[in-house]
Structure formats: structure tokens, C-alpha cells
């Protein structure tokens, strides 16, 4: 077991990567939106990995937390923009996003976390779909009409500020979420939560028998991961795009992207999701440019090949190789 600052050295490559990305974005503002998209994938992967990577539980309905976070921000801006709070609506939006995703994760946790394996995966899909249709069926938050709040944001904070919020600050927030997720992942890994969850991932029943309060740690990781997703939705989807439709934000397909990112890099590693996000995001972007319309046809077989050939993901593999070298202490 490592102690002191050495245990937290692996945060350096993470910080360096994000700093580099930010740097590129600042120096070459032409590519800012691309950088922002990559940051979104990094944050998505990191936040998803925090629970999935540590526990091995696949939350297929993970996107529900992004969705409800998006609504948190949307509701705040939509209803409070004329109250003269200025930039305060954004802060309230972030708080609401956190509260909403916390609430939903508690509800889901109480139900689905009792289940394991495929049953858990299916239950979480059920939560995501069920929640979406509850919004549409009961016309909560305008139902399927969604909330379009571009005008409200502009009225609340002014045209220039609104533009800066959507095209710059929203992305900075995404970076913040990504970094926060990385820090929390490392802190959990180095503390009781991580050890307990490692035991759980290896053998849940054995961990229980040994007197580890598995459920408690599972819920801690689950809630943390959910709140990060809520904040991510609030910034990357609400603040940036200034509208929300339920069919757009409760789309399972984003969970699949999170899974791809985590698997590419290596589940349960710290650097893996970043590597996965950068590879996936960049590949997707350039395929959209070079071969418009054929991205998925190319992606799907490649992904299958990667899972079959590198089941540990790239960083997982690297971690094994570098375990006893001087570089090893940076890579987890």
C-alpha cells in the first residue's frame, strides 16, 4: 500500500492531459468546439467509470442522470431568468442538477442496487425509459415539448454573457466535471471505498461475509457517479445547447458511448477513460469529416475487435506492463 503524496501521483498525467487540451483550445480557438467535445467524452467516461469501473456493475440507464441534470439547469434558467438573479441562475441550475441527480440516484439505488449482473443492467434501462415516459405521459416539465430556453438565458444575463456561457464557460465547466471525476476516482481508489469495492468486484458474497458493508460503499460510488453525470448534463447539454427534449437526453445510446470509452481505455483505471475518450472522440470526429455516413459501419466491427483482442483496454494493458517500472506509479 502506498502512502502520502506518492499515492496521488497518478493525478499528474490526468492534470497534464487536461491542461494540454485546454492549452490547445486557448491557443487555437478554431478548434475549441472539438476540444469541448473531447472534454465531454472524458468527463462522461470518468464519471461512468467511477461507479462501473470500481464495482463492475453496468448501469445501462446511466444517461438518465445526465438527462435529469440537463433538466435541472433548464428549469432554473427557464423559470428564474426574469428574477434578476443574473449569473446566479446558472449556479442555481448546477445546484438543482446535483439535487435532481442525487434524488434520482437514491431512488434507483434503493431499487436497482439490490440486483446484480444482467438484472441490474436491465433494471437501469427500465429506470431510464420509465422516467422518460413519466415526463412525457404526465406532462412534467412540458413533457415531450421539452424546454427551449435560449431566450430566457439571454434575458437573464444579457446577450454577450449568454453567448460566452454557451460557447466557452459551459465547456470549461465540462473540464471541471472531468477533473473532479478524476480526483474523486483517485481519492476513492486510495481509500476505504476503493478497497471495499475492489473486494466487491472480485467476489461480492465473499466481501459481505468478511464483514464489509458492501451496500454502503456501492451507494457512495453510485451517487457520486450520478451527481457528476447530472453536472455534466447541466453544462454540456443544457447550458451549451440551451434546449432540452426528453427523447434527446434520455437516449440509451450515450450510455453505450460511455461503455465504449471505458472499455477502450480499461475499466477501473484512472487514465483509461481519458485515453478512451480521446481516441473515440477524435476518431468519430474525423470519420464524420472524411467518410460522412459510414462512421457507425466502421466503428462497430472495430469495437468488437478491440473487446475481443484487448479485454483489459489499452491502459489496463499498459498498467500491467509498467507495474514495476518507474513509470508505473503514474499509471493506474
Amino acid at each position: 500500500m502506498m502512502n502520502g503524496y506518492r499515492a496521488y501521483l497518478p493525478i499528474l498525467p490526468v492534470a497534464a492531459t487536461y491542461a494540454l487540451l485546454l492549452g490547445i483550445g486557448v491557443v487555437s480557438p478554431d478548434h475549441w468546439q472539438l476540444i469541448a467535445q473531447l472534454a465531454f467524452y472524458c468527463a462522461l467516461g470518468q464519471a461512468f467509470n467511477l461507479f462501473m469501473g470500481m464495482t463492475g456493475y453496468v448501469d445501462f440507464g446511466y444517461v438518465a442522470f445526465l438527462g435529469i441534470g440537463t433538466y435541472g439547469m433548464a428549469v432554473s434558467i427557464y423559470t428564474l431568468s426574469d428574477k434578476g438573479l443574473g449569473i446566479g441562475v446558472v449556479l442555481i441550475g448546477l445546484v438543482l442538477a446535483a439535487i435532481f441527480s442525487l434524488g434520482l440516484s437514491l431512488a434507483v439505488g434503493a431499487v436497482a442496487l439490490r440486483l446484480r449482473g444482467a438484472y441490474f443492467a436491465i433494471a437501469t434501462i427500465g429506470v431510464n425509459e420509465g422516467f422518460r415516459y413519466l415526463l412525457e405521459g404526465a406532462r412534467i416539465w412540458n413533457g415531450a415539448d421539452g424546454i427551449i430556453f435560449s431566450r430566457h438565458l439571454r434575458q437573464g444575463v444579457g446577450r454577450q454573457t449568454a453567448m460566452a456561457l454557451s460557447t466557452w464557460w459551459a465547456d470549461i465547466l465540462v473540464f471541471g466535471v472531468a477533473f473532479l471525476a478524476a480526483v474523486l476516482t483517485l481519492v476513492y481508489m486510495r481509500n476505504k471505498v476503493g478497497y471495499a469495492l475492489l473486494a466487491l468486484r472480485e467476489d461480492e458474497d465473499a466481501a459481505k461475509v468478511m464483514g464489509i458493508n458492501v451496500t454502503r460503499y456501492k451507494i457512495i460510488a453510485f451517487i457520486t457517479s450520478a451527481i457528476l453525470a447530472g453536472l455534466l448534463g447541466a453544462s454540456a447539454w443544457a447550458l451549451k445547447l440551451t434546449y432540452v427534449y426528453p427523447s434527446d437526453v434520455f437516449a440509451i445510446h450515450y450510455t453505450v458511448e460511455a461503455i465504449i470509452i471505458v472499455l477502450l481505455g480499461g475499466a477501473g483505471t484512472l487514465l483509461g477513460p481519458i485515453f478512451g475518450a480521446l481516441t473515440y472522440g477524435a476518431a468519430k470526429y474525423f470519420l464524420a469529416i472524411v467518410l460522412p455516413g459510414f462512421q457507425l459501419l466502421i466503428f462497430a466491427p472495430v469495437i468488437i475487435a478491440i473487446i475481443v483482442l484487448f479485454p483489459d483496454g489499452t491502459v489496463g494493458l499498459l498498467k500491467k506492463r509498467l507495474r514495476d517500472t518507474p513509470l508505473g506509479k503514474f499509471i493506474i
Binding site: G56, V58, I303, I307
Partner: peptide, 18 residues
């Protein structure tokens, strides 16, 4: 892990769709 087979079957579906 579960993750791998879930993603693999999903990708099979995507291949067929495309």
C-alpha cells in the same frame, strides 16, 4: 465481464443496422 458482452451484442446490432 458483463460490460464486454453487452457492448459486443450492441455492436452486432449496429453492424446489422448499418
Amino acid at each position: 465481464p458483463e460490460l464486454a458482452s453487452l457492448l459486443a451484442t450492441f455492436s452486432c446490432g449496429v453492424i446489422l443496422e448499418e
